[in-house]
Amino acid sequence: MIKTRDTSDVFDSVVLLDERLCQEGFQDGYKDGLVSGKEEGREVGLKMGFQVGEELGFYQGCLDVWNSLIQIDPGAFSSRLQKSIQQLGDLLGKYPLLDPENEDVQEMMDAIRLKFRIISANMGAKLEYKGYPKSSTQGMEDI
């Protein structure tokens, strides 16, 4: 009977050791995951933020050119088109650049893109944001 008891104690200690090592492994993995998750999140956020800023800059640049043309020649665009250009400016001005956690950013970007397409179509121009070929991916290939 003593042998059975000793065997039971050995198995209990093996089970306890296994559980303790699993817990330690989990804790180590969790800590490492937090660190690498933050780093990866920062890199992805930087890339996505750059792409959004680049696209918004494209639309703002077009808006600036159109507004300059309107100042030089107020009759260059119809009043309807001028109103659309002003609405695009309003949309761009309302975009929450300093509030990345705003839940409405995607809807706002969709509205900006739509307004831009409407203006381009009304001008008879084939303008489209395609992204700068090198800047959006340069140095971020591994992300």
Score class of each variant (00 low, 15 high):
Asn102Leu: 03
Ala76Thr: 08
Met48Ile: 11
Glu107Asn: 12
Ser79Lys: 12
Ala76Pro: 00
Leu56Asp: 06
Trp66Pro: 00
Asn102Asp: 14
Leu91Lys: 08
Asp99Arg: 13
Arg80Leu: 10
Ser79Thr: 12
Gly37Gln: 05
Gln60Thr: 10
Val52His: 05
Glu55Cys: 08
Ile72Cys: 04
Ser84Cys: 05
Val52Pro: 02
Leu63Phe: 08
Ala76Cys: 01
Asp28Gly: 03
Ser79Asp: 10
Glu107Phe: 06
Val65Ala: 09
Asp32His: 04
Gly75Gln: 14
Glu101Phe: 10
Asp28Ile: 12
Cys62Tyr: 13
Leu98Gln: 13
Glu40Leu: 15
Ile85Thr: 01
Tyr30Trp: 15
Gly33Asp: 02
Glu107Tyr: 02
Leu69Trp: 13
Ser36Glu: 12
Trp66Asn: 00
Tyr95His: 03
Lys94Leu: 11
Leu63Pro: 01
Leu97Trp: 08
Asp64His: 13
Glu103Tyr: 10
Ser68Tyr: 04
Glu40Asn: 13
Lys47Tyr: 00
Gln87Cys: 01
Arg42Gln: 10
Gly49Lys: 06
Asp64Glu: 15
Met109Gly: 00
Leu46His: 09
Gly89Trp: 04
Met109Arg: 05
Tyr95Pro: 00
Glu107Cys: 00
Gly75Trp: 04
Leu34Gly: 14
Asp32Tyr: 05
Asp73Pro: 04
Gln106Val: 09
Leu88Arg: 01
Val65Glu: 10
Glu101Gly: 10
Tyr59Arg: 03
Ile70Met: 03
Gly41Tyr: 01
Asp99Val: 13
Val105Arg: 14
Asp104His: 11
Ser79Val: 11
Ser78Gln: 06
Gly61Cys: 07
Gly89Val: 04
Val105Pro: 01
